[in-house]
Simulated scan of single mutants.
Amino acid sequence: MHNLSKNARIAGFVYLLLILIAPLRLVYIPGKLFVSGDAAATIAGIAAHEQLFRLGIFADLVTGAVSLVLTFTLYRLFKDVNKTWALLMLMMGFMDTPLYFFNSLTDMATLILVQAPTYLAAFDQAQRTGLATLFLKMHNLMTFASEIFWGLWLFPLAALVYRSGFLPRFLAVWLTINGVAYLALSGAGLLRPEYNELVANLAFPCQLGEVAFALWILTMGAKPRQPAALRGAATTAA
């Protein structure tokens, strides 16, 4: 029981670390540096805050690495609940890492274009701005594509939580809703971008399922439920 709770707290710590790091490039940097509808101002913002943009690249790489550790720690926590579902969760969750690493390449290309090195002298400023914007758009679309896996891996995780017997089932329900929210965000971003903002506003409270799950296992650990027969005996004895 002690090891189970310890493993849950380790997984919770790693999950919370992921939740804290990932928004840097996903939310903070776009809000700080990017100007909607103005490519030149966006590129100028990146050039003026190059170190912050570099930090975003580093944060994405760290997020990919931490995500890999997270899937392993959760697999170790749930493998005895149902190995098939745990392996499915592991495979779906693993996809997060290569997607983050691939998406970092688009930001690296953007950074090079913003720096305007001499070997790109054949491209004028307008061309470099256009290419940098292209890579930023690719990064944004790749994020929407990644949300498919951000959502899918939560379904086997939710099933494991529900069947575990050592975590409350309301977390499983919230994780399932969280998974549906990610799929909705991905669908809107790839198919109907005009609804991005509406879907994002509706999805936000649903996305707190991961936060609730991470905080619960970090602070509460894992507590196996007492069999009904033992609970009845305890009640009778009392």
Rank of each mutant, 00 (worst) to 15 (best):
N3R: 10
P98Y: 03
N201F: 07
D107I: 04
F72Q: 14
L167K: 02
F78P: 01
V211D: 15
Y195I: 03
A158W: 04
V173C: 00
F53M: 02
F102A: 12
S67R: 00
A203V: 11
T84I: 09
I29Y: 02
L171D: 15
F78K: 01
F155G: 07
L17Y: 00
A145R: 04
A65F: 11
I148Y: 01
A122H: 12
F78D: 14
T110I: 01
E50Y: 06
I57G: 12
T236Q: 15
A172R: 01
F102W: 12
E50T: 05
L88I: 06
A47G: 05
I29T: 10
L99F: 02
G56W: 00
P205R: 02
L208A: 07
D124K: 15
G187W: 01
G179M: 11
A126G: 09
I19R: 00
T84F: 15
K137C: 00
A172L: 07
F58Q: 07
F144S: 14
L33Q: 09
V14N: 04
L134Q: 11
F155K: 03
L68A: 11
G179S: 13
G189V: 08
A200D: 13
L131S: 05
Y75W: 00
N201V: 14
Y75Q: 06
P224R: 12
A65G: 10
M108E: 09
L18W: 03
R128M: 04
S146W: 05
K79W: 14
F13E: 13
P168F: 04
L215G: 04
N178W: 07
N103E: 04
L87C: 04
I112N: 07
T219D: 12
T219H: 11
D60V: 12
T97F: 05
L152E: 09
N201L: 12
L136W: 00
I46H: 06
G189T: 08
A47P: 02
I29Q: 06
G232H: 15
T143K: 02
L191N: 12
V173Q: 06
M1Y: 05
F58M: 10
P227S: 11
E194L: 12
A86S: 11
H49Q: 13
F101T: 01
A126D: 11
A121T: 09
M142S: 11
N82G: 07
M91C: 08
A59V: 00
F149S: 10
L88G: 12
S186A: 15
L55G: 14
L202K: 08
K137W: 00
L141K: 07
I46W: 05
L191K: 13
L87N: 10
I21R: 01
A11P: 03
I57R: 13
P117G: 05
N201Y: 10
L171G: 08
R163N: 14
P227K: 15
A39K: 13
V114Q: 08
F58A: 13
A121Y: 05
P30K: 05
A228V: 13
G189Q: 13
G221S: 10
I43Q: 07
R163Y: 13
L70W: 11
G64N: 10
M89I: 02
L167Y: 11
G209F: 01
T176L: 03
M142D: 08
I10V: 14
L134P: 01
Q51W: 03
